[in-house]
Computed example of a mutant assay.
Amino acid sequence: MFSRRSLGVLVVAAFAVAVGVATETAARAAPRLPPSPVLDSCPDPVDPVEAATVEEVEQLLVGTWLRCGDTPFMVGDAGPLGVALTADGRFFRVYQGSDGGLVRVEGLEQEGTWTVLASDTSYQVNLTTSGLGTATSGGLEFFESPSQVRFGTMIGPGAAVRWTGDPPVPGSVPGADDGPCGQPRDPLVLTSVADVEQRLVGTWVRCSETSGFGTPLEGQVGLEIVEDRRFFRVYRGADGNPVRGEGDGQEGTWEVIDVTSTGEPGAFQLNLMLGGRMSMNHVVLLQDPIHLRLVSEVSSDYQLWDGAPLPLPTAPPEPEPPEVAPPDTQPAPAPPPDGSLPPTGPSPSIGLLGLVFLAVGIALRRSTRSAAR
Rank of each mutant, 00 (worst) to 15 (best):
284 V>D: 10
288 D>I: 05
322 P>E: 15
304 L>H: 06
325 A>E: 08
306 D>Q: 11
308 A>F: 00
284 V>K: 00
290 I>N: 03
310 L>V: 13
287 Q>R: 14
306 D>F: 06
320 E>Y: 01
304 L>R: 15
293 R>S: 15
315 A>C: 02
321 P>H: 14
289 P>G: 14
316 P>S: 03
296 S>P: 03
304 L>W: 03
317 P>H: 09
297 E>K: 08
284 V>H: 05
314 T>G: 03
297 E>Y: 13
300 S>G: 03
314 T>C: 01
316 P>T: 02
323 E>G: 14
307 G>F: 08
288 D>W: 13
289 P>Y: 14
315 A>I: 02
288 D>K: 11
291 H>L: 11
300 S>M: 01
323 E>V: 05
323 E>L: 09
316 P>G: 00
307 G>W: 12
296 S>M: 08
309 P>R: 01
299 S>R: 09
307 G>D: 10
301 D>H: 14
308 A>Y: 00
287 Q>L: 01
306 D>S: 13
287 Q>K: 12
325 A>M: 04
313 P>F: 05
325 A>V: 01
305 W>R: 09
303 Q>R: 13
320 E>C: 00
290 I>V: 13
300 S>D: 06
322 P>F: 12
322 P>S: 15
319 P>E: 07
292 L>H: 12
298 V>A: 07
289 P>V: 13
300 S>V: 02
323 E>I: 00
296 S>D: 15
284 V>G: 12
289 P>I: 13
305 W>I: 07
296 S>N: 15
317 P>A: 09
289 P>F: 15
293 R>N: 12
301 D>E: 12
323 E>P: 00
288 D>H: 14
319 P>M: 03
309 P>G: 06
316 P>A: 10
303 Q>M: 09
292 L>D: 13
314 T>P: 02
289 P>H: 12
323 E>H: 12
287 Q>V: 07
294 L>F: 10
318 E>W: 01
324 V>S: 15
290 I>F: 11
302 Y>G: 07
303 Q>P: 00
303 Q>G: 07
303 Q>K: 09
298 V>G: 09
292 L>E: 14
295 V>R: 08
288 D>F: 14
324 V>N: 11
299 S>K: 05
310 L>P: 01
298 V>I: 10
293 R>F: 02
320 E>H: 01
318 E>N: 11
306 D>L: 10
291 H>K: 10
310 L>E: 06
294 L>N: 11
309 P>N: 02
308 A>K: 08
314 T>F: 00
321 P>D: 14
315 A>K: 04
305 W>G: 09
320 E>A: 13
286 L>H: 04
